[in-house]
Simulated assay, not measured.
Amino acid sequence: MEIFAEGLSVIGAMLLSVSCGLLLEELVFGVLARLFFARQPEARNEKERNSQGEFPCLR
Rank of each mutant, 00 (worst) to 15 (best):
M1S: 09
M1L: 13
E2S: 09
E2A: 10
I3R: 13
I3L: 14
I3G: 06
F4G: 11
A5R: 08
E6P: 07
G7P: 02
G7D: 08
L8Y: 10
L8D: 14
S9T: 10
V10C: 07
I11E: 06
I11H: 05
I11Q: 06
G12P: 00
G12H: 04
A13P: 04
A13S: 14
L15Y: 05
L15W: 01
L15R: 04
L16W: 09
L16S: 13
S19V: 12
S19R: 11
S19D: 01
S19T: 15
C20V: 13
G21W: 00
L22K: 01
L22D: 10
L22F: 13
L23V: 09
L24K: 07
L24I: 15
L24A: 15
E25T: 11
E25H: 14
E25I: 09
E26F: 07
E26R: 13
L27Q: 14
L27F: 15
L27E: 08
V28P: 05
V28N: 10
V28L: 15
V28G: 00
V28Y: 06
F29L: 07
F29P: 07
F29C: 06
G30R: 05
V31G: 08
V31M: 08
L32G: 00
L32F: 02
A33Q: 06
R34K: 09
R34V: 01
R34L: 04
R34I: 07
L35H: 04
F36H: 02
F36M: 03
F36A: 06
F37G: 02
F37P: 04
R39P: 06
P41Y: 03
P41L: 04
E42A: 13
E42W: 08
E42S: 15
A43F: 12
A43Q: 09
A43G: 05
A43W: 14
A43E: 15
R44V: 15
N45P: 04
N45R: 03
E46I: 12
K47I: 12
R49E: 02
N50E: 12
S51V: 08
Q52G: 01
Q52H: 12
Q52P: 06
Q52M: 11
Q52S: 13
G53D: 02
G53F: 01
G53C: 04
E54P: 07
E54M: 07
E54S: 02
F55W: 10
F55P: 03
F55N: 10
P56Y: 00
P56I: 04
C57T: 10
C57F: 05
C57H: 11
C57L: 15
C57P: 00
L58H: 00
L58S: 05
L58W: 03
R59Q: 12
